[in-house]
């Protein structure tokens, strides 16, 4: 089994933390993994993308080929659409519906319509949920929770264990906040 995932968002939204959690879970599960990251200049408030490839057989390319991703997981709606050519026909888009407005003419209507036109899409009002539950720093983990059932090659339980593992150096309070976010996300995902 093989899963290609595109993680996208705006620099600083925590997409590399999502990659770290999935990467930890995959390594513990003995899966092969390749994860291409973005560092340097583009991280400063610009568009960021990380390709994550998971497989039980050998993976050659660090980059996800066009038309082969099973899932686009995005912290920002326009950033989800930017990587659509990587998605396969039956692939899913799971994205925050809250635009990150740091550019002059953000095409809100274009983004809304394009997302609505996709067959396999789940949009999450991340801003509202994190406000409602007072978990401002865990929006990325909440999104991962929504996607948990769609990743397939890893179980939600394996992901949860990795959340504990990754955040434990930051203290129990941080771990609990992220577990809460993950569970909220899972519930949201199941309702879709």
């Amino acid at each position: 089994m093989k899963k290609d995932i595109i993680l996208s968002g705006v620099g600083g939204q925590g997409i590399l933390s999502i990659a770290t959690i999935i990467g930890d879970a995959a390594t513990r599960a003995g899966l092969n993994l390749k994860q291409a990251e973005v560092h340097g200049m583009s991280q400063r408030g610009g568009e960021v993308e990380s390709g994550l490839r998971l497989s039980d057989t050998e993976i050659h390319s660090d980059l996800v080929p066009l038309g082969s991703a099973d899932l686009i997981l995005s912290m920002e709606p326009m950033e989800a659409l930017r990587y659509l050519p990587f998605l396969q026909k039956e692939g899913y888009v799971i994205t925050s519906s809250s635009p990150f407005l740091n550019i002059a003419a953000y095409p809100e209507e274009v983004v809304r319509r394009a997302l609505a036109g996709l067959e396999h899409v789940i949009t999450v009002d991340l801003d509202q949920i994190i406000r409602e539950h007072s978990i401002p720093k865990s929006a990325n983990v909440l999104l991962l929770g929504v996607a948990a059932e769609f990743i397939g090659i890893l179980t939600p339980e394996q992901l949860e264990e990795s959340i504990r593992n990754i955040f434990s150096p930051k203290g129990e309070a941080v771990v609990e906040m992220n577990i809460k976010a993950f569970k909220l996300g899972r519930e949201y995902g199941k309702r879709q």
């Binding site: 400063r44 408030g45 740091n102 983004v111």
Partner: peptide, 11 residues
């Protein structure tokens, strides 16, 4: 990529 998606340069 849908028409109308604009770049988001670093800042």
């Amino acid at each position: 990529i849908p028409d109308g998606i604009v770049p988001r340069p670093p800042a």
